[in-house]
Amino acid sequence: MSTYRAVPGKPQTRGTPARKAKTARYPWLRNLKRDKYLLLLFLPCLLYYLIFKYGPIFGIVIAFKNYSLFQGIWASEWVGLKYFKLFIESPDFFPVLRNTFLLGFYKLVFGFPAPILLALLINEVRNAFLKRFVQTVSYLPHFISNVIVAGIIVMFLSPTGGLVNHVLEAIGLNKITFMVEPDWFRTIYVSSDIWQHIGWGTIIYLAALSAVDPQLYEASRIDGANRWKQTLHITLPGIAPAIVIILILDIGKILEIGFEKVFLLATPVTYGKADIISTYVYRVGLTNANYSYATAIDLFTGIISFLFILSANWFSRRVSDNSLW
């Protein structure tokens, strides 16, 4: 039974003195009680990352073992850096690494500025309905499955019934067999990736643009600045922190090219330009049930990506005030 008694003339508060003292000693308990419904909504996201992102980290130990399904992880023999050395000495190491890096580099060079330009253009539109329409249409492809996107690409670039080849033929040019020409693979992948994700990336920059103080534009117009100067001296500096953060994260993803679209678009004829680390891991490591080799390659890729992020963050911190940490 509670020993708390109300004092006449003083407002009554809920909770016993012991409970209130405990809450005062541990403020996080008060915050936990206050935000319990928000934390409940966050719980599925937390479970997703714990199960599918952090849980599998334990599996990287098999990169240093001769893993056998029958012996299990701990009973398998330790082999140290054997599979890392095997991958680096493989004749496929430099071609696969080159293809992955170039595909990620082209995606960064051409794909990173695209959402920024689209956000700036949408921001200049004064018609609210047209602005919402363009934004909605631009980010809808982000929700389309890569399987469907690959099918659309194959249909449009078909040498027999494809729209692109029909246009080339109509203007007097020869048809091109895009899907079996290795030199066209990177162009097809990068351009389709821009089309698929440009609208989704624009959402971040439009949110950053909404935080720019409108009074800065009014003051610049009084000083005689045109739209170009306003964009150069107000808009871009206003969204610079968002640009830098996204750029650093994208630099870290240069070697993490998505497996699905490359796997669906690549053919044995285009492997010279299309075979990247993820498809190589699938074909050599997983298809042949060499799990230790596949894990070693993935871990190697993760380490290189982490070094890219560290380098990009260090450089950003040296030349500007914006960085991840």
Rank of each mutant, 00 (worst) to 15 (best):
G59Y: 12
G59I: 11
I60E: 07
I60K: 01
V61N: 05
V61I: 06
I62Y: 07
I62A: 08
I62P: 02
I62C: 04
S68K: 06
Q71R: 15
G72P: 04
I73P: 08
I73G: 08
S76H: 03
S76K: 04
E77R: 15
E77T: 15
V79L: 05
G80F: 01
L81Y: 03
L81N: 03
K82E: 09
K82R: 06
K85W: 08
K85C: 08
F87D: 03
F87V: 05
F87P: 00
I88T: 05
E89I: 03
S90E: 01
P91M: 02
P91K: 04
F93Y: 04
F93R: 01
F93N: 01
F94V: 12
F94K: 08
P95K: 00
V96N: 00
V96L: 01
L97K: 05
N99G: 09
T100M: 00
T100Y: 00
L102A: 09
L102T: 13
L103V: 14
G104A: 10
F105V: 13
K107A: 02
L108Q: 05
L108W: 02
V109L: 07
V109H: 05
F110S: 02
G111K: 00
F112N: 02
F112A: 07
P113R: 02
A114W: 03
I116D: 01
I116H: 00
L117S: 05
L120S: 09
I122G: 05
N123E: 04
N123D: 11
E124H: 03
E124F: 06
V125W: 01
R126N: 12
N127Y: 08
N127V: 14
A128L: 13
A128D: 15
F129C: 12
F129A: 15
L130W: 15
K131D: 13
K131M: 10
R132M: 11
R132N: 13
F133H: 12
T136L: 08
T136I: 09
T136Y: 07
Y139I: 10
Y139P: 09
L140Y: 13
L140P: 15
P141G: 01
H142Y: 15
I144G: 14
I144N: 12
I144D: 12
I144Q: 10
N146T: 15
V147Q: 06
V147H: 04
V147E: 02
A150L: 04
I152C: 14
I153Y: 01
I153K: 03
I153R: 04
I153P: 06
V154Q: 04
V154P: 06
M155L: 14
F156M: 15
F156W: 12
S158Y: 07
S158V: 09
P159N: 08
G162I: 01
G162A: 04
G162Y: 00
L163M: 05
N165F: 00
H166I: 11
H166T: 14
V167D: 06
E169K: 09
A170D: 13
A170W: 10
A170V: 13
I171W: 09
N174D: 15
K175C: 13
K175D: 12
I176S: 12
T177C: 10
T177R: 14
F178R: 07
M179R: 03
